[in-house]
């Protein structure tokens, strides 16, 4: 429970700063090209930052409450308030479902996948730069594989969507969650690299950096597998969602 919360909180912080960085570059980038690139990445990242972080943030808040057992349910301890307060995040400023439609429908598919490529290119570069780093292998190998799968799945969903517009809505939330986990994998790999380098250099904050590497490992082995379920589910198609007539819902 605690490690899941840690992986979420620290990964989230990294994603927020990455997104904020793009916002800054959009405003203050020195060249037109730099600003344009930042704009595209920002457009890609914002629905993920909003929806993915509020969804897993809520899960993490509930885990924190669960650690307290029965006391977690008692108002004075503050944990259940945190859960209640966190719940609105998935609803306002555009529900999770709407963010998902924005990501897949507008940002990814309407640019023919270019906005995704803008991101996966950066991931690909990072993976290549660290391909020969033995210590980074547990992160680079799964990340590279995931990065490729991400592109493949996007293409597949795009093709089914051309034949049937309802496929976008059917796949969107699974696609958003998959994307969130993939972005996190990239960020956790980057953090692991920084931490490993610091440990190799010698540091007075050994515990801090060791913990980063370990949390990254936890994320990769225990949380990242969730992408597998989302991959299967997003390709399941719109039929199972749309076949059921309205009257059958009423029973």
């Amino acid at each position: 429970m605690l490690l899941t919360q840690k992986a979420v909180a620290e990964g989230a912080r990294a994603l927020i700063y990455l997104t904020a960085q793009k916002a800054d570059l959009l405003q203050r980038g020195k060249t037109e090209e730099e600003r344009k690139e930042a704009d595209e990445l920002l457009g890609f990242l914002t629905p993920i930052a909003k929806a993915f972080l509020t969804e897993i943030g809520y899960e993490a808040a509930n885990l924190g409450m669960q650690v307290f057992g029965g006391h977690g349910y008692i108002s004075e301890w503050g944990m259940e308030q945190n859960v209640r307060d966190a719940r609105i995040g998935m609803i306002y400023e555009g529900t999770t479902g709407i963010q998902a439609l924005d990501l897949l429908g507008r940002k990814v598919l309407m640019t023919q996948g270019e906005s995704l490529k803008g991101f996966t290119k950066q991931v690909h570069t990072f993976c290549k730069e660290n391909a020969d780093n033995e210590q980074m292998k547990p992160f680079i190998e799964p990340l590279a594989e995931l990065n490729k799968e991400w592109g493949d799945l996007t293409m597949k969903v795009g093709m089914t969507a051309m034949k049937n517009r309802e496929e976008v809505g059917a796949a969107s939330v699974d696609y958003l969650m998959y994307s969130g986990y993939a972005v996190f994998a990239y960020l956790w790999a980057r953090m692991a690299k920084v931490a490993q380098d610091k440990l190799a250099e010698g540091t007075s904050e050994e515990l801090f950096y060791t913990a980063k590497v370990q949390t990254a490992r936890f994320y990769f082995t225990r949380m990242l597998p969730r992408t597998k379920a989302h991959a299967v589910s997003m390709m399941a198609g719109a039929d199972t969602l749309l076949d059921m007539p309205e009257e059958a819902f009423a029973l």
Binding site: Q214, R217, T221, R222, A229, G237
Partner: peptide, 25 residues
């Protein structure tokens, strides 16, 4: 089609064992 596939992820997580969970001091 949509819910049962979650089992794929869960199986993989379980197979990763206890190491990453118990490493932190």
């Amino acid at each position: 089609d949509r819910v049962l596939p979650k089992t794929v992820s869960l199986a993989e997580g379980i197979r990763s064992g206890s190491e990453s969970m118990m490493a932190h001091t």
